[in-house]
Design a binder for these strands. Structure first.
Length: 484
RNA sequence: CGGGGUGUAGCGCAGCCUGGUAGCGCGCCUGCUUUGGGAGCAGGAUGCCGGAGGUUCAAAUCCUCUCACCCCGACCA
């Protein structure tokens, strides 16, 4: 008698996505604030897991956390021509402070290259000050016209790394190192396969020399830019006069990088693994690994059941799992749905029949398989299951990406492949085609509401060829797809 | 900014055309019975009908203005 039904993916993928977030208790629209969201405790717990995993990796690669102001003098944005042009349309600007019109307006940071550039200029004098490796966890604001929870909201949470180096080689190395950190995290922890690639000029970060990305494929075949890492060249160094004296006593501008991932990753996580019953979480990012649902009739049974539940719980906690024993005054069925919709990897049921037999039932979220096991085998088995689920989710996502990637050798083939694909109905694909990085080719692809996502760093599709729009020679195929 | 839509109980909605002082489902509270896939029965609480003005004996309902949010297009981690 399911009352609260999640819209099936088949019927309307976009509605399904909203439902999964709602029933999974991850977030809700801020209603009183246009385009913003409230991240609820369960959603935030997932973000905290992401933060913890990434922060550890950032520290391991030598970065230190710092914090810069949320307000940026408007003049700073204007110092880098391409940067201001790219961000102007989506800025929120503070014009009044303390009831008085401000002398200089403040932009609420859409990203922090400029203000960090200003301080880097103060902090860096010598090659001995380099490399400077900083990361900031922060919120940023981009006034979006069209928003979707987690994927695009006017305010979002993210992390932005900012580094300065003595040479371009070093900066490029850093850019690619952090791209690899993102890719490894996405695949290893989120179980979300990604393609490492280079952005085209049109998709490049405003002000960067080159932008690299990890691109993931959602269940509807849409592409999601899951992380970016930018080689900024000396663009911001020059704009903010970030100079250092090298060992040869010469003054030079620093070479910078910046890289970021955001709460958008939560959206990617949802659209990579979840199903028609709600959220599915990879164990490495699940705030709760094991939900134990005790079932009883009489008071005697209640006591015996709870005792068994606690015993299993403490065993599982000792094995390093995060466990919830559900003691709420609700029917077992209601509890099953509750944990299922929240994506808990394994649920354990312990009822009178089990207590009698000294067993419990474990059900995995991803496949729905149930096993009945002796009480003392639950914890060790749960640990194994975490590993199996983690691998299984990644393998399934990888297979899906492979199944929905095709090769095309003409514009008509690309158009045909993406025809009818929508966020609601699905049908998206990664179409691998030769396409030149120039405005004409870019416009042509945009005319079918798709974009050139990136040129993969690893060429798995047979090298160079002629651009399907301009006929120019290009060294490798790009991914063309509809994207979030 | 163009096109469309919606504001009524915590949530989802009906009522509006044809004015007469607000209702349904879910949820919530209390009690009893229940509990291996969203429990049942009984009782109960909850509204400045988005805001302002107007018409009228009387406005959720008619008129004017306004605000907010949502959806569709152009920008985007």
């Amino acid at each position: 008698m399911g009352k609260k039904k999640i819209t099936p993916r088949e019927q309307d993928y976009a509605a399904w996505y909203q439902d999964v977030i709602r029933y999974g208790d991850l977030a809700e629209p801020a209603e009183v604030v246009k385009g913003c969201m409230v991240i609820k405790p369960h959603g935030y717990a997932i973000w905290e897991k992401i933060q913890a995993g990434l922060d550890k990796r950032f520290k391991e690669t030598g970065h230190k956390n710092a914090y810069f102001p949320i307000f940026i003098p408007e003049s700073f944005l204007k110092k880098e021509a391409e940067h201001v042009e790219g961000f102007s349309p989506e800025l929120a600007v503070v014009t009044i402070g303390g009831g008085k019109e401000l002398e200089e307006r403040y932009v609420i940071r859409p990203t922090s290259e400029t203000i960090i550039g200003h301080f880097f200029a103060k902090w860096i004098q010598s090659w001995r000050d380099l490399p400077l490796l900083i990361n900031q966890w922060a919120n940023v604001v981009r006034w979006e016209l069209r928003t979707r929870m987690f994927l695009r909201t006017s305010e979002f949470l993210w992390q932005e790394g900012h580094t300065a180096h003595a040479t371009h080689e070093e900066a490029l190395e850093e850019t690619l190192r952090m791209l690899e950190v993102y890719a490894e995290f996405a695949e290893g922890s989120m179980a979300m396969p990604v393609i490492r690639g280079v952005k085209t000029s049109a998709e490049k970060f405003a002000g960067a020399h080159k932008s690299y990305c990890i691109e993931a494929m959602m269940q509807n075949g849409y592409a999601l830019q899951a992380g970016t890492s930018h080689d900024l060249g000396q663009n911001f160094g020059k704009a903010f006069d970030v100079k250092f004296q090298n060992a040869e006593k010469q003054l030079d501008y620093v070479w910078q990088t910046s890289w970021g991932v955001s709460t958008r990753l939560v959206g990617g996580l949802i659209m990579t693994h979840s199903d028609d019953n709600g959220l599915v979480l990879p164990p490495k990012l699940a705030p709760v690994h094991l939900a134990i649902v005790p079932i009883w009739r009489s008071d005697d049974q209640r006591a015996a059941t709870l005792e068994a539940a606690e015993r299993v719980a403490s065993g599982a906690r000792d094995a390093g799992l995060s466990v919830e024993v559900d003691l709420r005054d609700q029917s077992p069925g209601a509890k099953f749905f509750h944990w299922e919709q929240r994506g808990v990897p394994v649920r354990v049921e312990i009822g009178p029949r089990d207590v009698e037999a000294g067993t419990a039932v474990a059900k995995r979220r991803d496949t729905g398989d149930k096993e009945t096991l002796p009480l003392d085998k639950i914890a060790p088995r749960a640990v194994e299951l975490m590993d199996e689920i983690q691998r299984g989710l990644f393998a399934a996502a990888q297979q899906r990406m492979q199944d929905n990637t095709i090769v095309a050798d003409s514009f008509d083939e690309v158009r045909a492949a993406l025809k009818g694909a929508t966020a609601e109905r699905g049908g998206g694909k990664f179409v691998m085609a030769h396409i030149a990085d120039d405005p004409e080719a870019d416009q042509k692809i945009r005319s079918i509401k798709a974009t050139v996502r990136c040129v993969p760093l690893e060429d798995k599709h047979g090298g160079g060829g002629k651009c399907i729009v301009t006929g120019k020679d290009v060294p490798a195929r790009s991914i063309i797809a509809k994207a979030y």
